[in-house]
Design a protein around this nucleic acid. Sequence first.
DNA 1: TATCTTTTGTCAATGACTAAAGTAAGTATC
DNA 2: GATACTTACTTTAGTCATTGACAAAAGATA
Lengths: 378, 378
Amino acid sequence: MKPRAGSKALIREINEALVLDVVRTQSPVSRAAITVQTGLSAASVTGITGKLINSGLLVETEIAPSTGGRPARLLELGREGVFAAGVRLSATEAHAVVVDLRGDVVATHSEPLASTEPAEAAAAAARAVRAAAGGREPRLIGVGAAVSGVVDQASGLVRHSGAMSWADIAFQELLEEATEHPVVIDSYVNAYTRGLLFDDVFAGREMLIFSVGTSLGAAVVVEGRIQRGFNGSAGGFAHSRAITGPEPARPCHCGAEDCFETRGSLWGMQRELERRGQDRQLDPDGDSALIANAALHLGIGMANMAKVLGPGQVVAGFAPEAVLGTFAEQTKDAFVRQYDHANTPPPIFDTAIADPVALARGAACSVLAGLFTASPTG
Amino acid sequence: MKPRAGSKALIREINEALVLDVVRTQSPVSRAAITVQTGLSAASVTGITGKLINSGLLVETEIAPSTGGRPARLLELGREGVFAAGVRLSATEAHAVVVDLRGDVVATHSEPLASTEPAEAAAAAARAVRAAAGGREPRLIGVGAAVSGVVDQASGLVRHSGAMSWADIAFQELLEEATEHPVVIDSYVNAYTRGLLFDDVFAGREMLIFSVGTSLGAAVVVEGRIQRGFNGSAGGFAHSRAITGPEPARPCHCGAEDCFETRGSLWGMQRELERRGQDRQLDPDGDSALIANAALHLGIGMANMAKVLGPGQVVAGFAPEAVLGTFAEQTKDAFVRQYDHANTPPPIFDTAIADPVALARGAACSVLAGLFTASPTG
DNA sequence: TATCTTTTGTCAATGACTAAAGTAAGTATC
DNA sequence: GATACTTACTTTAGTCATTGACAAAAGATA
C-alpha cells in the first residue's frame, strides 16, 4: 500500500472511522463517552456525529437515565442507513447475504451456477446479490466475494482456484461490472476471518484462523489486521510438509508429498480411502482411525504454525461436511499436546462451524470494515 | 497499538516522515520531485522542508543542472543534524555504534561486561554508547539495543534470554536510566532485520529473515513492517519440530524433542558431538556430514515457514562463528529443493553475515525508523 | 534582448480541530 | 419551590496545516 499524504480529508476519515468504531464496539454510547474514548474534543464529536447521523450511519435512540446532570442521548449504528452484501461462490452455487452496518444478516439468497466460467459465475453472483438486496440495493456500499483458492485482494485477481478451475482471473473487475457496485474479493478463510473479527468474541489482535474442509486454509491476523503475504499467498500451510513417521508417503495434487492437505483435509482422507480400494464416502464411525490420524496431523501442523506466529487465539473453522464425529475435538487435543512443549503459554483454541452463510457474511464484513478503519483495508 | 485521533499534528508528522523518506530513498532530490512523489502541494513541501532544514535533518547541497528552467536545489539527509546509537549486548561485551541519519556508522566502541546482571549490563551498554557518541551525544535521538532472546518491544521487557540468564527484565527502562536517552529494545534477529530494511537491496515488503548462530531466530516482515506477534514471540521457529525420519530423537533445552534448534544451530551440532562422546570444537572439515545434515534441516524448515508466509525474499544471516565451510550454501540448496515443490514461485534467497556491528547498526536503525514512518514503529 | 521553462516562495482561503463560553436538562439541598 | 450543583451537549472564535493561485528566481532558447 503506497503511503498517503496527510490532509484535512484524512483527519476527517480517521476521526469518523474512530467514532464509528467506538459506537460499534460500545453501542449504545453517549457523545460524552465518545469524547473520552477517542480523545477528540467534545466540539469535534458533536460535529462528526452530526454528519454521521445525517448520512444515516448513526441514530439517536434512547435517553440514558441521568447520573446527576443532563441525561445522555445515546447513539447506535443505524440499521437502515447503509448495507453491504457478501457472496460465497462455490462450483455449484452463489450464496449471497446482505448485512446491515452492525454486521447482522438481514437477507439471503442462493442462486445456482450454470457453469464455473468466470463471466457466468459473476452473473450468478450478481443475481444473488440483487435478489437478496431487493429495495436496499441503492443503499449498498459494496459487495464482498469469498472465492475458493489463492486470491490477491490488492490486484483483484484470483490467482488459482482448483474448485472453479480458474487461474489469474480478474474476478473483482468482472463482479464490479455485473453488480455495478464496488467489490472486494478474498479467499474463503480470509472472508471467514473477517466475520470473526467483526464479532467481539473473536476480535483478538493476534489470531490464527484455520479452515478445514475439502481443502485446508489458514489466515493470519497480526495487530488486528489480516496478513496476505506476497501475491496473497500467505496462510498456505496446506502444502507445508507434515511429519509422517513410518507411514507410507502420500502424493499431493500439488506435486509434493505428505503435504498437510494429504493428511488433514477431506480430500486427503477420501484419497486415502481410494488408495485402499474403498470407493465410498467417509464414514465417521467406520473410519474413526483414519479421522483420528487426520486430526493428529492437523493439530500438530496448526501448533507448529502457531508457534511461529505466537497468536493469542487460534480458531479452527470446520466446514459443515467436515463435521465428522469427534474430528474437531481430536484436532484440538493434538494441538494442545503439541503446543504444550513450548515455553510460551498456549493460545486459546476454539473450534467453530464455517458454513456458507458465515463465509458470505464475512465477505460482507470486509466491505463494512472499510468504514471502521481509516487506513487502507487490513 | 491504540488508535489515535486525527489532528493537525498527526498530519504534520505523517507528511514530515513522508518527505524524509522520499529524501532518504532518492537522495539527492529536488523539492519539485518531492512534490510529485508525495502528492503534497508545492507550498507544503516548501514549508515542511524549510522546517526540516532548520532542525538539521535536511541540508541543501548542490544545485542540479537546469533542464530548461530554474535549476533545482537538491536536498539530502543531514549528516550532522541528528544521530542514533545502537548496542549489541552479549554475555561478555557491549558493542556500540553511532550512525548518522543515513544509517552510516560514524563511530563504534566496545565495552566488556563484568557480569550479565541487568543493571551492570545496562551500565556497560551506556558506557559503550557514551564512548562511541563522544561530542555527538547531545544530538543523539535515541538508543537501540539488540538483546539475545525473546523481547517484547512494546512493553520494553526481555521475556527470556538464555545467553544473559534473564527472565522478564525491564531492560528498556534500565537502559533509559543509564543512558538518559529514549531506548528501543529488540531481539537480535529483529535488529538485524531493521538494518537490512534500511538498505535498499533488502528493502522488500514481504521478507523472511533468519539468524543462524548458537541459536536460531526468524523475523517476519509484512508490508515492510516487522511483525512481532503476541508478546513479541513471533518468529520462534527455532522450536518448531523438525522432520527427522529414522534418526534418533534429540532432546531440546526447551523440553521438547527434535526442535529445529537441535538440528540446525551451533548449539545443536555441538550437543550432538557431545552425545557422540566427542568433547571438542566443531570442525568444518571433519564434521562435514553433521554440518550437511544441519543445513538440510535448516533449509527444509526455512522453506516450510516461507510457504506459510509467501515472502518475496528470504535472507539467512549467519553469525561469524556459524561460517563453517559450505554450511550456508548447503542450507540454500536445501531451501530451494524443498520450496520447489510448491506451486508458488520461490522467493529470492540470500545468505549474509550477521556480525556484531550489523546487529548494533540494526538496533540504531530502529531508532531512525521512527523518523521515516509516521505510524507507530513497525 | 525577449520569451519560455522549470523551480521555488508567498499569500489568502479552506476547513478540521480545540478551548472557552453558553445552553439544556436533570439532581441535590435548604 | 428556589437555588446551587452536575453532567451533556452546542456554539463561537481562534489556531494552524494544507491548498490553489500567483509571483519571483534563475537559467535555456531563439
